[in-house]
Write a protein that binds this DNA or RNA. Structure first.
Lengths: 217, 217
DNA sequence: CAGTGTGAATATCTTCACAGCA
DNA sequence: TGCTGTGAAGATATTCACACTG
């Protein structure tokens, strides 16, 4: 990590940094070498000072009067976020969504390698998905340590999400991304993120309903 | 919609309401009839006054000294969000993730029915997934109107996301949920939500890195 | 009297505006 | 001159604290 100020970094900043990385990579592929906060802001859909402020939490990466060097900035952000390495991930719940993630190459491309797949359904255990054997969830503890897993992904049905969490905790996991539409609990030293896409559909439905009430259509 | 104050409702409130619905449904299934903001707050991982304030945007649903009637509150929130009906959805991009969503029953259970699947890959067109024929993306316009679609889901690779958006716009869609890891642009009267789960993995990686730096493990 | 509904207080996040540097 | 980096201002969101009610 470069130097990082003695200031708490807002959650919102982190998720925007992820967006910046995404856009910087796209720019890199298009051969763009240098970018201003103005330009990057447009393609990320945020305010330019927002970008400058977000970056300021980690250091000074820009050249006044010029902008940012695309490749360098991308690398600097990735380093700041701890993405200058790969992370081993265990996936619990080999349903439709779990299978999709097991086959989803973008994850690996971004440095998140699913090294273990687990399910409690006897019919699924032993099956092979994308070159990975499905193990019984009760084996999470020994397998995780063997495979050096640090992050868990939960793609079980909602009612089994907490059980999956418990297995992951026993396995000494440090972070969890929960795709199941259910709240889960974990000790404060274990990071939890929710990917709750029904949520997003709810929001869309609400906004459309409101727009319709306003007579926008 | 009940009565809704003449006050803008924060985005954050909307996504919490979605969580409340989730938890209220779980409580209902467990036979809980009445709940206080305190109890609901615990299971949603938020502050009790937050809940009361969120609900206050839409009306008064509680009984002082008692709490909220689980079923009634859930119904009231759903009505406020425009979820007292079903929404027809078109899905663009029948890859791993698209297939998973087509087979994901929770969506339908929540009132979002995928009525059309589209892809531009000739090998996929004509294929049947979960009882739905895959059509060529160029047919989005006519098919969408025929099927009365209001919401689009994008599950294409990032570089094809904007093209999918354009098709959806032509089809007169009113809201888009984008699962592709790419920023997209749409006119302001079309609601856009991002489901960016790589984002969440980035956040987890960052938090773990930070915790490690703090010597937490 | 337990628990809601809400104004007021606090905390957090975003945007502005501009000094200062390449 | 052009664009960064940043303190100060403004906008939002969250939490507190308590009057009030079933």
């Amino acid at each position: 990590m470069p130097y990082q100020k003695f200031e708490r970094i807002p959650r919102a900043t982190i998720s925007r940094l992820a967006i910046y990385v995404q856009e910087l990579e796209a720019m890199e592929q298009h051969g763009v070498k240098v970018v201003s906060s103005e330009k990057l802001a447009v393609s990320c859909g945020v305010n330019p000072s927002q970008i400058r402020k977000d970056l300021a939490y980690f250091g000074e990466f820009g050249l006044r009067g010029v902008g940012y060097h695309v490749f360098e900035l991308k690398e600097a952000i990735k380093q700041s976020l701890g993405l200058d390495r790969t992370w081993n991930v265990a996936l619990v719940g080999v349903g439709n969504l779990g299978r999709a993630l097991l086959r989803y190459n973008i994850l690996r491309k971004r440095g998140f390698v699913i090294v273990g797949a687990f399910d409690c359904d006897p019919f699924k255990i032993g099956e092979e998905v994308n070159g990975l054997e499905v193990y019984c969830s009760s084996r999470l503890q020994d397998k995780s340590r063997e495979l050096n897993v640090e992050i868990g992904i939960i793609t079980t049905p909602p009612e089994r999400a907490q059980r999956a969490v418990n297995y992951l905790l026993e396995a000494g996991i440090k972070g969890i991304v929960n795709f199941a539409p259910a709240r889960i609990t974990a000790p404060p030293n274990v990071a939890v993120e929710y990917v709750d896409f029904i949520n997003h559909l709810f929001s869309i439905a609400f906004i459309i309903t409101q727009n319709q009430a306003k007579g926008l259509y």
